[in-house]
Design a protein around this nucleic acid. Sequence first.
DNA 1: CAGCAGGGGGCGA
DNA 2: CGCCCCCTGCTGC
Length: 505
Amino acid sequence: MAEGMLSLSWNNHRATFCHILSTLREKERYTDVTVACDGKFYQVHKLVLSTCSEYFEKIFENTPCKHPVIVLKDVQTDELEALLSYMYEGAVSVAQNDLARLIKAAEVLRIKGLAVPDEPPLSESCSKRVTQSRNASDDRSSPHPKRRRREESNTSLQGAQTSTSPPASPRVSSFESEGETHHSTSRTQSDSRWMDQRSSEREDQSTDHPLDDRLGDHTATSRSSPTPPQVEVMVDETLVKEEMVDHVDNSQDDIVDSGMDYGSMGSDSRLDGSGGGEEDPSSQMLPNKFEPKINPSQGQAQQLPDAVVEALAGPSGMQGWLSGCEMPTGFSGLEGYSGGDGSQDVHPPPQGQPVSQSQAHQLMDRETNSQWTDGRRTTGEWQGHTLCNKLHQCSHCSFNTADIHSLKRHNLKHTGEKPFSCPFCPYKSARKDLLKEHIHTHTGERPHACPYCPYSASQKNILRAHIRRHTGEKPYACPFCSYRAIQKSTLKSHLLTHKTNDHSV
DNA sequence: CAGCAGGGGGCGA
DNA sequence: CGCCCCCTGCTGC
């Protein structure tokens, strides 16, 4: 050190750091990732997770989303809570009977200090794989600690620090060596195997699904990997449902509304397939047009579909914090896409040629049959509502309906009651199904796949309009000229040109 | 052209 | 009552 230089040392830095981190977690301040587990949601910090787990670190590296949602399966909430406490505080108390389970979860999540010890492992029967392939070379990759077994019924998992021990918090030490740790090549064998496995999985999938390359490898991971690891990130939606629906609770009640910028989301998520202006429908069907606009950073399907609504809807719904998250695209429409050269060889419209209006309607009808009916409606029925006897009159407006249920729902509009809250933003809805659809904008779920191209839409109507591009159907005809539009709003804009011309003449 | 939100109709549990 | 149907309007790229 140069002469005259003073070394300023913050004696309680580590302890203070730990304390502040824990406080931030409690208050959910600056949280930037949501961990979903068994229907519960934990607002935590990427920094802490990535510091304490290479697994999370890899996830975040491949997830540019500002506030990703990580769905864990095969991990119990109590395990996760214990591990979070361990990561934030460097120590956690756990019942001895639960130790094995916790260690297993820690291994799944590659929690440093638990799954990646930095000292010869204890010969505990529950240590399992941890006892294998450990040597001093692990030190660099795992600056942490120390699993210690107590004689008491409760076992305390801790780093190197307790309230009475010298300050050598594992978490703090991990900060000190973060760069070295996270980029170290001296991973344990199990680490390497694990990472290799992950890599090979991605390679396999990218081979099977060429489009996945364009979407980013995380998409490949998220899309129903054949042999998924015990923990999945953004697992298949059906998986999420199965895992979460049955574990609804109100644990989100105490999550504060941080007043995020509602409305800032979604605009980034455009999976815009618009080719722009082609009159020839056949030329509008090239999936290539979609590919350049598929943002790899949006490839992660963060799907918290129905389960989130199930778990969170209601007046006490979690008001999470997902500010500015770049909307991922679930891209659920890939099922029928063979990818490869991008040729339109999946479910092509007949002849692949421009279709007449009548043909277009036939195609639409066929699509209606195959895609949009659920048995309760038959073809064509949806095109026009049947007139009903209107028995129930709204006391606030002229609305009347034969369906008392509709009237009750309608009344919500007048009362302003919106009992269903979005877990990701301040959005509230009077209707659960509307909230569900809204949440798609956060999760990126696009359940409605185009049969002609890889595009998928969050709403069925969007898909329906999109399909018109393929079929060439333009149902909205201009009364003043031969112009026809796919969307009503487009015709509306077109009509303005007539008005303008009229005025100019 | 696509995304999003609000809304009413209607069926099944 | 929940859920899905479809329609509509507005907005932004």
